[in-house]
Amino acid sequence: MTDLPGYLVTGLGTGCGYALVGSGLVAVYRVTRVVNFAQGAFAVVGAMCAASFLTALPHGLGELAAVAVAAVVGLLVGMVALATDPRSALIVTLGLSVFAYAVEVLVWGDQPRSFAGLPGAVTIGDARVQSHYLLVIGVTLPVFAGMALFFTRTGTGKALTACASNPYAAKVIGIDVRRMGWLAFAIGGALGGLAGVLVTPVQQITFDADVTLIVNGFAAAILGGLTRPAVTLAGGLLLGVTQALVAGYGNAAHQTDVALGLMIVVMIWRAAQRQTRGPVEEPV
C-alpha cells in the first residue's frame, strides 16, 4: 500500500494535463457552443514547439513561447471554425486537426518527441516519483485559480461570461461576440499548449497523441457539462488518478480503457439525469 502516494502524485500530474485540455474545451464551448476537436492538437503543437524552441532558448522562455504559438494556432482555428454554425464547427475543427497532422509530420516528423523537464526525483512513501510531476501540479493549480479570477473579476472575463450566458444580449450591448469567440479559442489554444508543454517531459508525445488527449480532456470536462472549469479540474484529476491506480495495481495496458469506460458511464448517467429532469439547458 505504500506505493499509493507515488501513484497518487503521478496520477494527479497526468490528470492536470487532462484538466488543462478539458478546460480549453470548456473555455471555447462556454462562449461559442463549439466542441473544439482541435483542442488536442493545440497540446501537440505546444509540445513540439517547446521541443524545438528549447534547443535555442532557456527553460521557461522556451515553454512560454510554445504556449504563445499554441494560442495563435487556437486563434486561427477559431477564425475558421466560427465561420459556420456550432454543429458544423465540430466537423471543421476535426478537419483542422487532421490537417495539423500534415503540418506536424512535415515539420517535426512522425517520431515521438520529448524534452527534459524538471530533473531529479523525490521519494514519496516508498516510491520514487519524478520531480517534474510536482512541477506540473504546481503550475496547473495556479493556472486554474488565475482563470477563475479572470472570468469573475476582469472586464474581459465578464464579457466572455456574458457571451456564454446570453449571446444575443451581449450583441445588444455592443460586445463583439465573434471576436470574443476568437479570444476564447486563443485561450483554449494556450491551455492546450500548456498541457502539452507540461506533460511531454514525463510522457513522450507523437503527432497523433491528440486523439487520446482530446478524449481524456472531454471526459474530464463532461463531468461539468462542458461549462464548469472547476469541475473539469476535478474530473481531470480523478481520471489521472484512476489511470495511475489501474496501472499500478492492475494492468498498465488497460489504464486508458478504464478511464474511457468511466467517461461513457458518466455520459449515460448524465443522459439518464437529463431524461428525468427534462430537456433543460445545462447550468453554466
Binding site: 475558421v80 471543421v92 478537419g95 483542422l96 497532422y101
Partner: peptide
Amino acid sequence: LSYAVYGLLLVVVVL
C-alpha cells in the same frame, strides 16, 4: 498528403 487532403476537404466542403 493524405492528412492534408482529408483535413482540407472537410473544412472546405463544410464551409
